[in-house]
């Protein structure tokens, strides 16, 4: 179908965009890459009265290192992040997960800021950002604030963004020596929505796991961490027995949703298998 009528605003700067967002309140939506919003409009699932197109706002698409953090502008495209040497070096979990994100033309337009604002539970990036303890920088015309990734995602297609707020940047702590990362996923075709995805970050020192973070995709809530399973891993040698036990724990800890191609039981089985693979790969990369 065709999208419903709307008014189009194209701000030339961030303050202009924030003013427009403040002016139009709940009836205005930010248009970034449009790869989720426009399909929803074409299907008439959403009918924003005003679209605020931020694609020509300068400075919003930067990928840079600032102190101990990788800083990603909200408008950075998936294609740019997939090809970024900075991302590979400083956030290998994101680089690994990006192999599974969308197809070329979707990655050319889709943005990280738009992706997380949409908060699709099947999406890889909310899980990656939660596992990395990233923070989300958001602004409105009146104020700016920082939200931990784990608290940013409040449910399926729901975030902590208040009316008039938009994501402006994502900050990810730089990967440290001794850390290993891996993303494993099951989807019907590469680039399709994940049935289940598991992202793992482990730190190994003196042969023992000192930190573990696990983020899962394809479950009921985007950006979910498996904190009970993580605790079981700390102090272990990440040997085969510890990984198998953790993978079984992950299977129990997840809260799967049912999707067309995978019911909750199948998703739990996927999580166990994917978690075991991701943990082993992350451990090997940490050495």
């Amino acid at each position: 179908m065709k999208p419903p009528p709307f008014e189009y605003v194209r701000p030339g700067s961030l303050p202009e965009a924030l003013d427009a967002l403040a002016r139009h309140g709940a009836t205005g939506r930010i248009l970034a890459g449009g790869q989720s919003l426009v399909p929803m409009m074409n299907l008439r699932l959403v009918k924003p009265a005003v679209l605020i197109d931020i694609n020509r706002v300068p400075g919003l698409a930067e990928i840079r290192v600032d102190g101990g953090e990788l800083v990603i502008g909200a408008l950075a495209r998936h294609a740019a992040l997939l090809g970024s040497a900075l991302v590979r070096k400083h956030c290998p979990l994101m680089a690994d997960a990006y192999r599974w994100v969308g197809h070329g033309p979707i990655r050319n337009r889709g943005t990280l800021g738009g992706n997380i604002s949409h908060a699709d539970p099947a999406s890889e990036m909310p899980a990656v950002l939660a596992a990395c303890d990233a923070t989300i920088g958001v602004r409105s015309a009146k104020q700016s604030r920082t939200i931990p990734a784990a608290g940013f995602f409040t449910g399926a297609l729901a975030t902590a963004l208040a009316e008039g707020e938009m994501v402006t940047e994502i900050r990810v702590p730089l990967a440290q020596p001794g850390q290993g990362a891996a993303w494993e996923e099951a989807a019907n075709r590469k680039g399709d929505f994940a049935m289940a995805g598991v992202g793992v970050l482990v730190t190994v020192a003196g042969g023992k796991c000192t930190h573990a973070a696990i983020g899962v995709a394809g479950m009921a809530k985007p950006g979910t961490r498996l904190s009970a399973t993580e605790k079981r891993l700390v102090g272990t040698a990440l040997d085969a027995a510890a990984i198998a036990a953790a993978a079984r724990a992950a299977r129990e800890e997840v809260r799967p949703s049912t999707s067309y191609h995978a019911d909750a039981t199948y998703k739990r089985e996927l999580v166990e298998t994917l978690a075991a693979r991701a943990l082993a790969a992350a451990r090997d990369r940490a050495r």
Binding site: G34, Q35, V38, L51, P105, I106
Partner: peptide, 19 residues
């Protein structure tokens, strides 16, 4: 509906002409 905009392949059904 894939076309090239500024040399990049995009879905022209997910792009508004004004863009």
């Amino acid at each position: 509906c894939t076309v090239l905009v500024a040399g990049e392949a995009v879905r022209s059904c997910l792009t508004f002409a004004v863009q």
